[in-house]
Design a protein around this nucleic acid. Structure first.
Length: 501
RNA sequence: GGGGUGCUAGCUCAAUGGCAGAGCUGCGGACUUUUAAUCCGUAGGUUCAGGGUUCGAGUCCCUGGCGCCCCA
């Protein structure tokens, strides 16, 4: 049972500044004002006022009366004339002024007594420019619209990275870059949707809760369905469902949604991440590479007005033109200075691994070992956008065999700035071969590979009805934003997973 | 999994094993053209938690919590 003495106890343990702000809230109520009123009769946002008066002469009165609102970010109070800088959610700032002769002694006194940095206020008055030429609203009246009970962080010292992530709402108030990120992300996703809609694609939403993990090699999150009495997996990829869509005749299909992978957390990995996947009948990995480049370039253009994106640190990064294309074994051979192919013996690959201090897992098949060598020796050098093509068959159970090179599959990975941005296939559509690949995966799972895919009987049944020759692509949305902005994944995701405090 | 490193006032950070401090914020005062306002005064602490060593621990040791960096 919570009673008044408990509340008092809690209150007396609050930091001084929070006690004072609570007292100001009480004082507002006692004076007949609302600390949290229903609204404010706003006639113009800060941005609308700024847009309307881009250049006023110094010390000029417009005669234009407005009612506007914003969060108090700076205060400069003098005896009979007070200045404050208000900020809107879009980051627009505008100065307001309260003078004794306009608002009167009691309103000016209450302003100085009850308003703190971080409070949201409404101001009604005339648009003017100050004697220093600053566009301002000279108040006839002001009102609290939301009293802030917590002080803002210091405006001129950056918040710690952890606080920025844990309290993103504060980060959004304080840091333009955080606000820009949200809008860059929204613009990017809208552009991607537009790009696919304009090409006749249909957007679908496939299950997040799945009875089998499938579509990728990754460890899943496991949960439990009470009604079914079974385990469920949070999806690691939508791939197998999207291909079912193509079987059903949705010939161009895409989905933008979340995947969940129960793996490490670092500057390029989040357990929960946004994924774009798209599939097209009668396409292959070549045409899908072109399409992937186009939609990414269109997204870059929608954000930056150019195919040259500008990172947060100001450096420019060119995503324009055709993108470089190499093969896994060609680039690996170049890095090693010796010819390596999919038929290079395992023992030879081991020698290369030892020479380059690559730790080898004995469970790895030769194809996996070659891929690891590639990731170690080639990937860090892939800064400009590069399609890396033609992977070993044994690591890609959902991909069609290469049309001319035995042992390889028609798969590319897209690398930008040294990380993988997406992957594309000529899809494996033969149900008999697909069953063989699943069987091979099952053997891996028996050997303890927790990333191996289980056999998905229903997916095979779908293939047995006939999947048209198709191309498919997955692109990480968070990583695309990383490529655009040059920031880490925890900056591109609004609320990344963090340990409970 | 291994190694390193950090956690101190609302925020950002100091403090040889010896009185726990600064700037900003806050509070009180002055100021009708400021814009990170300025000036004067002042308050603010369970040093992440728990144990240990010591005359004495923010500091050294141990355990745990939460971060960050490097390696695998």
């Amino acid at each position: 049972m919570s009673d008044a003495s408990d509340d008092l106890q809690e209150q007396s343990e609050l930091p001084e500044q929070m006690r004072i702000r609570r007292a100001k809230r009480e004082a507002l109520l006692e004076s007949g004002a609302e600390p949290y009123p229903l609204g404010y009769p706003r006639t113009a946002t800060l941005k609308e006022i700024r847009d309307k008066y881009p250049e006023l002469p110094i010390d000029h009165a417009t005669g234009d009366k407005v009612a506007t609102t914003g969060r108090v970010m700076f205060v400069r109070n003098t005896g009979k004339l007070c200045f404050a800088t208000l900020q809107d959610g879009d980051g627009t700032q505008l100065q307001i002024m309260l003078s004794l002769d306009r608002v009167g002694a009691s309103a000016l006194d209450e302003w100085k007594r009850l308003v703190d940095l971080g409070d949201q206020v409404g101001v009604t008055g005339e648009v003017i420019s100050s004697k220093r030429g600053e566009l301002s609203v000279l108040a006839d009246a002001w009102a609290m619209t939301a009293k802030a009970l917590r002080p803002l962080p210091v405006a001129h010292k950056p918040l710690s990275e952890e606080t920025r992530v844990r309290q993103r709402y504060v980060d959004l108030i304080m840091r333009p870059l955080a606000r820009d990120m949200v809008r860059t992300r929204a613009t990017t996703i809208r552009s991607l949707r537009d790009s696919f809609h304009s090409r006749g694609y249909v957007e679908v939403e496939t299950p997040m809760l799945q009875t089998l993990q499938g579509g990728a090699s990754a460890r899943p999150f496991v949960t439990h369905a009470n009604a079914l009495g079974t385990e469920l997996f949070l999806r690691i990829a939508p791939e197998l469902y999207l291909k079912r869509c193509v079987v059903g005749g949705i010939d161009r299909v895409f989905e933008i949604n979340r995947n969940f992978r129960n793996e490490g957390i670092d500057s390029t990995h989040s357990p929960e991440f946004a994924m774009l996947e798209f599939y097209q009948a009668y396409a292959d990995y070549d045409s899908m590479a072109t399409l992937t480049r186009e939609v990414i370039q269109e997204a870059a253009f929608s954000v930056y007005g150019s195919h040259v994106v500008t990172h947060a640190d100001g450096t420019e990064f060119d995503l324009g033109g055709e993108w470089r294309s190499v093969t896994v074994f060609g680039s690996l051979s170049a890095a090693l200075g010796e010819e390596v192919t999919v038929s290079t013996p395992y023992e030879q690959l081991i020698r290369y691994a030892e020479k380059h201090d690559l730790a080898v897992d004995p469970k790895w098949l030769p194809g996996k070992l070659a891929e690891e060598l590639f990731e170690e020796l080639v990937v860090p050098s892939l800064q400009a956008p590069t399609f890396v093509r033609d992977y070993p068959e044994e690591t890609s159970p959902l991909v069609r065999a290469h049309r001319s090179d035995p042992g390889l599959v028609e798969k590319w990975d897209l690398y930008v700035r040294g990380f993988e941005l997406g992957t594309g296939y000529s899809e494996l559509v033969d149900p008999v071969i697909q069953r063989e690949r699943f069987d091979a995966q099952a053997k891996l799972a028996q050997r303890g590979d927790s990333e191996a895919m289980p056999l998905d009987e229903d997916y095979l049944r779908a293939l047995e009805y006939g999947l048209a020759p198709s191309g498919g692509v997955g692109v990480g949305i968070d990583r695309l934003l990383m490529a655009f902005t040059g920031l880490g994944i925890r900056e591109t995701i609004l609320f990344p997973l963090v340990r409970p405090e």
